[in-house]
Simulated assay, not measured.
Amino acid sequence: MTSARPKRSRTDPRRRGAELEDALLRAAWDEVVEVGYADLTMESVAERAQTSRAVLYRRWPDRRELVLAAFRHRAPGSGIETPDTGSFRGDVLALLRSVARRYDQLQGMYSVIMAEYAKDSDLSTYLRDRANQSVGSAMTVILDRAAARGELAPGSLSPRVKRLPVDLLRHELLFGKAAMPIPDEFIVEITDEIFLPLVELQAGAEVAGDAEADGGTARNVVR
Rank of each mutant, 00 (worst) to 15 (best):
T51C: 06
V55N: 04
V35I: 14
A27V: 10
V33N: 01
V55W: 05
L56E: 00
E34D: 11
R58F: 08
A27F: 02
R64S: 09
S52E: 09
R63V: 14
V45Y: 01
R26T: 13
A54F: 06
E47M: 13
R59Y: 05
L25Q: 02
E65S: 10
V33S: 05
W29H: 15
Q50P: 12
D62W: 10
R58G: 03
S52A: 11
A27T: 07
Y37S: 07
A46G: 15
L40R: 00
R26A: 15
D39C: 11
L24K: 00
A38D: 08
D62V: 07
L56P: 07
W60D: 03
V33R: 05
A28N: 05
R63Q: 07
L40W: 02
R58E: 09
V35A: 14
V33G: 03
G36K: 08
E43K: 06
V45Q: 00
A38I: 09
Y37E: 01
D30Q: 15
E34I: 13
D30W: 14
R59A: 10
W60Q: 03
R59L: 09
V32R: 01
V45G: 01
D30K: 14
P61K: 08
Y37D: 01
S44M: 09
E65L: 06
R53F: 07
V32Y: 01
R53T: 14
D62I: 08
R58Y: 07
D39K: 08
G36T: 04
T41S: 15
V32F: 03
R63N: 03
A46R: 05
L40P: 09
S44R: 00
W29S: 12
V55C: 05
Q50L: 06
E34V: 09
T51K: 02
E65W: 11
R64W: 10
R48F: 13
M42Q: 07
D30V: 12
V55P: 02
R58P: 01
Y57D: 04
R53N: 10
D62E: 07
E47Q: 15
D39E: 13
V33D: 00
R26P: 01
E34S: 15
S52W: 08
E43A: 15
R58S: 07
Y57K: 05
W60C: 04
W29F: 15
R64Q: 13
A49T: 05
L40A: 12
E31D: 10
R63E: 04
W60N: 03
R59T: 03
M42H: 03
V33Q: 04
L24S: 01
Y57L: 11
P61T: 05
V33A: 12
L56Q: 02
A38S: 14
R53P: 15
E31Q: 12
E47P: 09
A38M: 06
Y37R: 05
A27G: 11
R59V: 04
L56F: 03
L25G: 01
E65Y: 12
A27R: 02
A28I: 12
G36I: 13
E47Y: 06
R59E: 07
V35E: 01
